[in-house]
Each structure stands twice: as C-alpha cells, then as structure tokens.
C-alpha cells in the first residue's frame, strides 16, 4: 500500500530529470568508429584498389546484396569489373568486412542513406570506392601477399623468404 505511493513519488521525481532523448536532426550524435554503417571500398596506401574480387563477401552475405565480377588488369592484379551493393537489401551485419581478406570492404559510421527512389539505393563501384585507406592505414595486400604481379616477383613481398626449389634436396 505504502509502496504504491512511493512508486508514484519516484515517477513524479523523474519528471524533473534531464531528458535523455538526443534530438537527432538538430543534434547529431558522434557514432563510434566501429559502428556498422555505410559500406565502402577502400584503396591501399599507393592508391590502388584493395579489392581482389575474391567473391568472399558476396558468398558470405546472408541477404545476397553484393554482386561483383572479377577481372585482371595488365599487371596481373585482380580487380572487380563491377561491384554493386544493393542497400535496400543490406542488413549491415558486417560479415562482408569480416570475410574480406584484403581489408577492402569496410563498414563506416554513416547512417544517413535515405533515398526517395529505391533504385537509388543500389550503389555501384564508383559510389562505393573511396580515395582513402579506411580503418587500416598501412596495409597493402600485394606488398604482403606471395602472389606474383608485375614489378614484384615471388619471394619479394614483405616478410617473405625467396621461393624454395622443392625438387632440390640440398639445404
């Protein structure tokens, strides 16, 4: 019986507490850097595309919103011929980012993606590709990978031994 009035009193006291609502369009909250928002494709420090078109992101995507086609340029580097994310399907789960072996696809803290036309939510490669490195500044896939491309032979990558002739018994 007494607790009922105590409850009323507590609720009344809360009427004079500062309100917690962030009034969004006027006051934009700072989103944490690991927030899963707008998806981007990043470049390596030299300005080349990081994406090697391995299809892992589109394979892992639970809503199948990523479409891409692989191609190879004159230097022997793979790249996506087109890269398309349908953001009307995307659930921002971040699995593509986890699957990506080259840190190319990244989720950034951006949420203001509203569009009036559904078609405008389909982002092409030029919409996704940014000029920067995103969350991983120093990383360049071809500099650490053992893959042979033009201008970098096998064994020339960072932390890589020269290749061993497996048919040779000599140490």
């Amino acid at each position: 019986m007494f607790s009922l009035f105590k409850g009323l009193w507590i609720v009344l006291r809360h009427a004079f507490v500062k309100r917690v609502t962030v009034e969004y369009p006027e006051k934009k909250p700072v989103l944490p850097p690991r927030c899963r928002g707008r998806i981007i494709l990043s470049r390596d420090p030299d300005g080349g595309e990081r994406c090697v078109a391995c299809h892992l992101c589109s394979a892992v995507c639970p809503v199948a919103c990523i479409a891409l086609q692989a191609a190879e340029d004159a230097h022997g580097r793979r790249y996506p011929k087109f890269f398309r994310i349908n953001f009307s399907r995307c659930i921002f789960c971040g699995l593509c980012e986890e699957a990506c072996p080259t840190y190319a696809i990244q989720l950034t803290p951006g949420v203001e993606m509203g569009e009036y036309k559904r078609q405008h939510l389909v982002y092409e490669k030029e919409d996704l590709l940014i000029s920067g490195v995103g969350k991983y500044p120093g990383y360049n896939f071809y500099r650490v990978a053992g893959l042979q491309i033009e201008g970098k032979d096998k064994g020339a990558a960072e932390n890589e031994q020269p290749p061993v002739d497996v048919r040779d018994l000599m140490p």
Partner: peptide
C-alpha cells in the same frame, strides 16, 4: 508519459 520517462 514522455516527461515521466525522461523523453520528449
């Protein structure tokens, strides 16, 4: 209700 719940 919003006032009591610290909302707007």
């Amino acid at each position: 209700l919003a006032l009591f719940q610290e909302r707007w």
